[in-house]
Design a protein around this nucleic acid. Structure first.
Length: 123
DNA sequence: CCGATGACTCTGC
DNA sequence: CGCAGAGCCATCG
């Protein structure tokens, strides 16, 4: 059909894959934007993740709060309502949040269970 | 078409 | 650990 709808579809597909990747993050764990992007099939497009999450409706009940920057920092501007909400949710899951930062060495997916969860060796 | 912006990441100093 | 620069990509004026 029209190219415009085609473009719209492509955008929806990106969002879909990204949303699924985010939803796959285990409770009590966190992942970086880059990791999600790669996992969704868009390596190098970390910014795309942030864009999609910001546009994603809350009714999807997406665990967006489990997505942090590569250094473990909250990816949202400090002081905003969303920022505080993310901190709150993480703590509620048992994730340590110190000064808006999470020790990914301990809660990151590539600490030890990386392949067990993301790699999906087939169990 | 170009410049600016941003829920990004990496490298170098 | 912090700062600057460069790469990256979609959206907006």
């Amino acid at each position: 059909m029209t190219d415009e709808l085609d473009d719209d579809e492509a955008r929806a597909l990106r969002a879909q894959r990204i949303i699924e990747a985010v939803a796959a993050i285990p409770r009590g764990r966190v992942a970086s934007y880059g990791a999600i992007a790669a996992r969704a099939g868009y390596p190098g497009r970390a910014r795309l993740i942030g864009r999609v999450l910001g546009d994603a409706p809350d009714r999807l009940k997406l665990p967006w709060h489990r997505v942090l920057r590569a250094d473990g920092r909250i990816g949202i501007p400090a002081g905003t309502a969303s920022y505080r909400e993310q901190c709150k949710r993480l703590k509620a899951e048992g994730v340590t949040v110190k000064d808006g930062r999470v020790p990914m060495s301990a809660f990151g997916l590539d600490h030890d269970l990386d392949r067990a969860i993301w790699g999906m060796p087939g169990a």
